[in-house]
């Protein structure tokens, strides 16, 4: 889970591995490294074959495609690391968008309206966390219920109609740019960097790993497990709401049907990036790399002119190959190390 480069330490053990090789080995062992290599290889291959892959507009288009998802990935990583997951993010994404649009149509100031959308997501997350920690309904059922509720709320308050006619000043977040980079991508980069640093280094976020690693041991080590889990779901809901707000700003329309199926795409990206469904493992950067991987494959299939009817099949196969390859290579490394030690 941790890739912190720290000098190897030897105590009473008999073998004293060379410091450099140990560091390199650990780097290679990290899921992120495998993924980065795969992503780079795919990028080079697509560029060589199509000649159109590594262009600024194309990379811009890919990044815009997963910018809002990247924000959701931060919260989902936390949920997966804590040993749960959040199936409601796609619906909360839509609900956050619908809420900000309604607030804007009610002529609330833009910052207040954005706050409404984000708060609405956080509220959904709070309800998830409350049910999971206090009533002790498992995360699958709780967030599946919220998936239905949040979607239902979005449909009911809009009567199924998309909401348009939003003020141009609001659209700048999703459509404007700074320093030649679209604002949406900048916001996503900030979310990823802040999220990754917090998950890696903040003492508060470190508790999430302990809770996911062994809940009872975490409790006996003095960690307030319920508070940690509650906070994780609030974070996940809040970020899904924020992503929904930004998506509305990009598309100028709040669609109550937006983000359906998003939860599975996000969970898949996180798993590709090294999260474990059993908890205790995963990094935000890993989840982002998973998204980039999926984004590259999707984009590559269009550039390679794979017929649309075959794209889903190809995507499924590539996903299984990627995770399968990684699992097998980790097992090989373990076996190789076991032989060396024995």
């Amino acid at each position: 889970m941790e890739t912190t480069p720290s000098a190897p330490h030897t105590t009473t053990s008999q073998d004293t591995p060379n410091a450099n090789s140990n560091f390199l080995l650990r780097l290679l062992r990290a899921r992120e490294a495998t993924l980065i290599i795969m992503i780079v290889l795919i990028g080079i291959a697509l560029q060589l074959i199509t000649g159109k892959f590594l262009t600024t507009p194309n990379l811009n288009a890919i990044s815009l495609g997963f910018a809002t998802s990247a924000i959701i990935v931060v919260g989902m990583t936390a949920a997966l690391v804590s040993g749960g997951f959040d199936l409601s993010v796609g619906s909360v994404f839509a609900m956050g968008g619908v809420t900000v649009a309604l607030a804007l149509r009610a002529e609330l100031p833009i910052p207040i309206a954005i706050l409404c959308g984000v708060a609405c997501g956080a509220l959904a997350g709070f309800i998830n966390g409350f049910l999971i920690t206090q009533i002790q309904i498992n995360p699958f059922i709780t967030t599946l219920g919220m998936l239905g509720i949040a979607r239902g709320v979005s449909l009911a308050i809009t009567q199924g109609l998309p909401i348009a006619g939003l003020p141009p000043d609001f659209l700048v977040y999703g459509q404007g740019q700074n320093l030649g980079i679209p604002n949406l991508i900048l916001i996503a980069i900030i979310a990823i960097i802040v999220g990754d640093i917090l998950m890696r280094r903040s003492s508060a976020f470190r508790q999430i790993y302990y809770v996911g690693g062994n809940e009872e041991a975490a409790r006996l080590s003095g960690i307030n497990v319920k508070r940690v889990v509650l906070a994780v779901y609030v974070l996940s809901g809040l970020l899904a709401g924020l992503a929904g707000v930004l998506s509305v700003s990009r598309f100028t329309v709040a669609d109550p049907g937006a983000g359906s199926g998003e939860e599975l795409r996000i969970i898949a990206a996180c798993i590709i990036g090294g999260c474990s469904l059993r908890g205790g493992k995963g990094t935000v950067i890993g989840g982002l790399l998973g998204l980039i991987f999926v984004g590259f494959i999707n984009n590559g299939m269009v550039l390679l002119r794979v017929p649309v009817y075959w794209q889903q099949l190809a995507m499924g196969v590539v996903l299984l190959l990627a995770v399968g390859f990684d699992t097998i290579s980790q097992r090989w490394q373990l076996r190789a190390r076991g032989k060396k030690a024995g």
Binding site: L64, S247, F251
Partner: peptide, 14 residues
């Protein structure tokens, strides 16, 4: 979804 339409058409335009 609008997201998939945008990503897909962006790629096709490349």
């Amino acid at each position: 979804t609008s997201e998939a339409a945008a990503s897909g058409l962006s790629a096709l335009l490349q």
